[in-house]
């Protein structure tokens, strides 16, 4: 077995490489959607919070994997939850895309006139407008549950490392460490994508907003379809 320090380093570099190869393709649309929804505000703090939330979820899952030492049992128990998150994410991206292009009056539908005190209206308005930067942390935690091949691979490493420890606590800690290392590695690519979307001249072009809106709707529908078939 690799030493603890080595395994943390291996998982960090794994996160770094899959971040550019895999996460950009799979999580890029989400990051772009979140960036564009900020409408001119700085992306750095919201995206650091989003990534922080995502890594927190990875750490928690890694802790469970390390403590139990079982990958297949844990993923089987969270499969339905992951499917739900995938559907919710797809729907969120579709709504954000439509609202960004001005094709749906989000205020009318979700808050300003229709049932403004409703839980769904208030919740959706908070998410879509993202007035509070702090929203990005729980959002990141939720989206950290999205099913993802490289995340599963890292969780598998956490479970294997946990199996070889002497106590549950030791397994839990090594599992958390492995997933935090992996998650930190993935941040670089996703922050770069967020920053790229934030370039001023790019955001000022209406045509880019329209194209992005169409792409977001397509990606959102793709997410929902994939989730239903998952």
């Amino acid at each position: 077995m690799l030493s603890t320090e080595t395994i943390y380093f291996v998982l960090f570099t794994t996160g770094l490489t899959v971040g550019f190869g895999h996460c950009i393709g799979m999580c890029g649309p989400i990051v772009v959607s979140l960036s564009l929804s900020l409408k001119g505000r700085s992306v750095l703090v919201p995206h650091l919070l989003y990534n922080g939330g995502r890594i927190t979820t990875y750490g928690l899952l890694g802790g469970v994997m390390g403590a139990t030492g079982s990958f297949t049992r844990v993923v089987a128990s969270i499969a339905s939850l992951q499917k739900g998150v995938m559907i919710l994410t797809g729907m969120l991206i579709v709504v954000m895309g439509l609202a960004m292009a001005g094709w749906i009056p989000l205020g009318v539908i979700f808050g300003d006139y229709y049932n403004p005190q409703g839980v769904l209206s208030r919740g959706f308005r908070k998410l879509s407008e993202a007035r509070s930067t702090g929203t990005y942390y729980p959002l990141g935690m939720l989206l950290g549950l999205l099913p993802c091949g490289p995340v599963y691979t890292a969780l598998l490493a956490a479970a294997r490392a946990g199996m070889e420890t002497q106590s549950t606590l030791e397994g839990l800690l090594i599992g958390v460490g492995i997933m935090l290392s992996f998650g930190l590695g993935t941040v670089v690519a996703l922050l770069l994508i967020a920053k790229l979307t934030d370039l001023g001249w790019l955001k000022r072009r209406d045509v880019i907003y329209k194209i992005s809106s169409v792409l977001m709707v397509i990606v959102g529908v793709y997410f929902v379809v994939k989730a239903i078939r998952y």
Binding site: G149, P150, T153
Partner: peptide, 10 residues
């Protein structure tokens, strides 16, 4: 792994 896609070390 998957052909043409980095899935991390397994």
């Amino acid at each position: 792994g998957m052909p043409g896609m980095n899935m991390g070390r397994n």
